[in-house]
């Protein structure tokens, strides 16, 4: 019976001031080991200044089947965008 370590999703902050971004995953027995593995795997070329690891099975994801219900209602709300307001040229930089 072989031992299988849990999978962790890795998020890397590339520079101060930027969000953490998903980079990939590692397998590790615990969070500390996962962090070290993530450091070795995803920041060998100075790609990061901060790391998060999250157990993959703790991620709650939206269902692709719900894509219509979740995301399409946002499609016809042009009034949320500045471009849908026509203003006189004198103040159009607003």
């Amino acid at each position: 019976m072989s031992t299988v370590f849990p999978q962790w999703e890795v998020f890397v902050r590339a520079r101060r001031g930027l969000d953490h971004q998903h980079a990939g995953s590692v397998h590790a027995p615990d969070g500390e080991t996962a962090l070290r593995a993530a450091r070795d795997l995803f920041t060998r070329r100075q790609e990061g200044v901060s790391l998060w690891v999250v157990p993959s099975n703790e991620i709650v994801a939206s269902d692709p089947a719900d894509v219509g219900a979740l995301f399409e209602p946002a499609a016809d709300k042009a009034y949320r965008f500045p471009t849908s307001y026509e203003l006189p040229p004198e103040v159009d930089h607003m």
Binding site: F5, V26, H27, A28, R36, A37, D40, L41
Partner: peptide
């Protein structure tokens, strides 16, 4: 013992 450890 693991591929991660090869890297480490």
């Amino acid at each position: 013992p693991t591929l991660e450890e090869d890297v480490a």
